[in-house]
Design a protein around this nucleic acid. Structure first.
Lengths: 238, 238
DNA sequence: TAGTGGTCTAGACCACTAC
DNA sequence: TAGTGGTCTAGACCACTAT
């Protein structure tokens, strides 16, 4: 063989399971066969299969429940907010935004978007421009771009829910499991100042994010600007 | 017994190892006994000991090297920068700051500091006020507070190195292994504007951080303000 | 060659959940 | 009671490092 099986068994088994998950063999929320059944089916020992499933559970792809079984992680608004939405107030309590207004259009991907989403020239993206409110006042300005080919018809599914990742999964079979975030501070431009009701030049927290699905594909490029003052993005490093 | 051993064996073993690490039985950089030796010494199976050591390695407390052994993680400037310093430039390349100037004093902990560091009233902290430069220009304004009781004499160890965590470990036996970061955007005040050479009101990225050692104790409360424009705090969620 | 961590196996028993 | 994941054991062999 050109490529010998240098990879450990549990890594190979993991790839096989990921492929079957990506193929839709097990839908979000569905129960997988038991560790024992999978081990027999794939011809490995129980310990090896457990190591594989454990790693997928650690990555958030699967969830284990003692006495019940192993399930494909289902993006719920609560889970997506807990995992991927990191905003807290001055007391450290999680903050949840409410819907504001949105504009959805299809446009050719710009150069920056092409690079972030690894798109070819001429590919279209669906662009969502929206703001969201916290405690009744506009607090988040957000520009979201997704490859049009990945989420056909998304532009007609308005109004979009507040949490987009559960929607991606439920309607388009795209499961976001990780993100790369870049945070910086920017001054509010005229439009942002008007929408968020702050002076022009006021400091805003800018979060630029690329989201990836379980196959490692970049599926979303997002820029969010948050009103500062009492709001912060919280993260634990370790 | 009042508290039965509800905890799994590998968790109990882990606590025992953490206690021995905290006691200084194995210094940073030192090699631990082999898994087999530890398993025999503590009366558990090899598999259980491996699970314990694996979890400590996953938390960054230990590092494993196939064929060599298991070692207590040593804070190096490189490692601390890689793990806990998240600044990147517009191309996504990691940025390393250089020393600027610093002022170190001992003061009674303020109410905010008391809360963040879980200090009693009247306890002193060592306060480090400094700025750091990137590519030759002032870019970071930082206020660091540590309990005076934890790091006796720190105030006389000036000039302090650029990376403080390796210094905490080498001189005071304090190993930072995780941090809670809160990021927001603020406007530059008069002093910040002058030091960083930006207009007053310019947006700065504020990072407020509490650092914890391997026993879970809060050991540092830090507020850093970063010049925006080309610089960003990068983090992966998953 | 000897010692280390890395992988894999085949079993056992426990804790929890459903029926 | 039967089935699930969670833990623990006792061994085997492999890959890597040092000497």
């Amino acid at each position: 063989m050109a490529k010998p099986d240098h990879a450990p068994l549990y890594v190979q088994i993991r790839s096989a399971l990921v492929a079957r998950l990506a193929s839709g063999e097990w839908k979000p929320g569905a129960m997988l066969p038991s560790d024992r059944a999978l081990a027999i089916e794939m011809g490995v020992s129980l310990g090896t299969m457990r190591k594989t499933v454990d790693s997928l559970a650690a990555d958030g792809v699967l969830r284990r429940h003692q006495g019940k079984g192993t399930f494909v992680t289902e993006q719920t608004p609560e889970l997506a907010n807990y995992h991927f939405f990191r905003l807290v107030d001055q007391h450290g309590e999680r903050v949840l935004p409410q819907a504001g207004s949105e504009v959805v259009v299809i446009i050719p991907a710009g150069p920056e978007t092409q690079r972030r989403l690894c798109l070819g020239v001429g590919e279209n993206v669906i662009l969502i421009d929206r703001f969201r409110t916290i405690a009744g006042r506009p607090a988040i300005l957000e520009t979201v771009e997704v490859p049009a080919a990945l989420m056909p018809g998304l532009e007609r599914e308005t109004p979009l829910p507040n949490a987009l990742y559960p929607h991606y999964q439920a309607r388009h079979g795209i499961s976001v499991i990780s993100t790369d975030d870049r945070l910086s501070a920017v001054a509010a431009d005229a439009i942002a100042a008007m929408t968020l009701d702050v002076p022009e030049g006021a400091p805003l927290l800018l979060v630029e994010r690329v989201a990836y699905d379980l196959t490692g594909r970049a599926v979303e490029w997002r820029r969010s600007r948050f009103l500062s003052g009492g709001l912060a993005y919280a993260v634990t490093l370790g």
